[in-house]
């Protein structure tokens, strides 16, 4: 037996365990190498971990990144207002267009309904009225659609702003506070323009028009919905003046109950 063979036999005897161990490590390394290099195998192992971490991250976004994102958005919007307006304009424009279309559609339907009454007595009456007033039939129908309506009437003491009497189609406002606020607004506007002689005559609020008619000890505020035309304004002024001259006396100014009744009698079913 050669020396080398003997050494080999000795190695086999002494290193059997180590070799087996090394072989196992090699096998494990191969599996690991496969896992790392082959996408589907790596994916099988890693995906559940990533999914879990991602879900946790998504859940924590509002807490961790929320304030930063909000702050960044705020700064961005503040610094690029023109860009924001440009981006929003088409959307808002579309919304407005849609709203106007819908309103025109409703108006058209109402006019159609009016037209369908073509052979009614009221139609013939309107035709005659249109002919004599010089207005077209369509204008007359439109004017009726947006007819001004007195929604609320408040008689308010000058300076103190205390409500003396009121008349309302529907009780939906806090009259005492409204008359106080109207007086404060009136005082503010009149003071601001430093005009002792001039007085605030009207306030526009949303679709309402608040007509203010001033008298020496009180003023009358009339809340009008619908079309507040100059023709209506003149009629209303005359009507309020007539009411003040012919109906209100000194006793009424101290006795709100009688004034309340007079207003109701005078303005209920009022068609100016």
């Amino acid at each position: 037996m050669y020396k080398d063979d003997k050494l080999q036999i000795l190695k086999d005897i002494l290193l059997t365990d180590e070799r087996t161990y090394a072989q196992k490590i090699e096998e494990k390394l191969n599996v690991l190498e496969d896992t790392l290099n082959k996408r589907n195998q790596l994916s099988e192992k890693v995906d559940p971990i990533i999914d879990e971490k991602l879900s946790q991250f998504i859940l924590e976004i509002p807490k961790t990144l929320g304030p930063t994102i909000t702050e960044a958005l705020k700064t961005e919007i503040k610094n690029s207002q023109d860009a924001v307006v440009e981006a929003l304009f088409p959307i808002i424009g579309k919304m407005i267009k849609k709203y106007i279309q819908s309103e025109i559609q409703q108006l058209s339907e109402r006019i159609n309904a009016q037209m369908s009454k073509t052979f009614s007595f009221s139609f013939i009456k309107k035709k005659i009225k249109a002919k004599f007033s010089g207005m077209s039939h369509a204008d007359l129908i439109l004017a009726e659609e947006f007819k001004p309506i007195i929604e609320q009437l408040l008689v308010v003491e000058n300076h103190s702003g205390l409500l003396m009497a009121n008349y309302s189609l529907t009780k939906n406002i806090e009259e005492d506070m409204v008359s106080g606020m109207l007086t404060a607004i009136k005082s503010f506007a009149e003071d601001a323009f430093n005009s002792e002689e001039q007085q605030l005559n009207s306030i526009q609020y949303d679709t309402f028009h608040i007509h203010l008619q001033n008298f020496s000890n009180y003023y009358i505020a009339v809340v009008v919905s619908g079309s507040y035309s100059s023709e209506f304004k003149h009629k209303l002024e005359d009507k309020l003046l007539d009411f003040a001259i012919t109906k209100i006396n000194k006793t009424d100014l101290k006795e709100s109950v009688s004034l309340q009744q007079k207003i109701k009698d005078y303005f209920a079913n009022e068609n100016l």
Binding site: E157, N158, H159, S160, G161, L162, G180, A184, S187, F188
Partner: peptide, 25 residues
């Protein structure tokens, strides 16, 4: 009915809008 006018704070009453004081009880 107490109608309460809560005016803005002012360290000098002369600077208060006088029209708000009118008609007070």
């Amino acid at each position: 009915t107490l109608v309460l006018w809560d005016l803005e704070g002012n360290s000098d009453i002369k600077k208060t809008r006088t029209s708000y004081l009118l008609g007070s009880h």
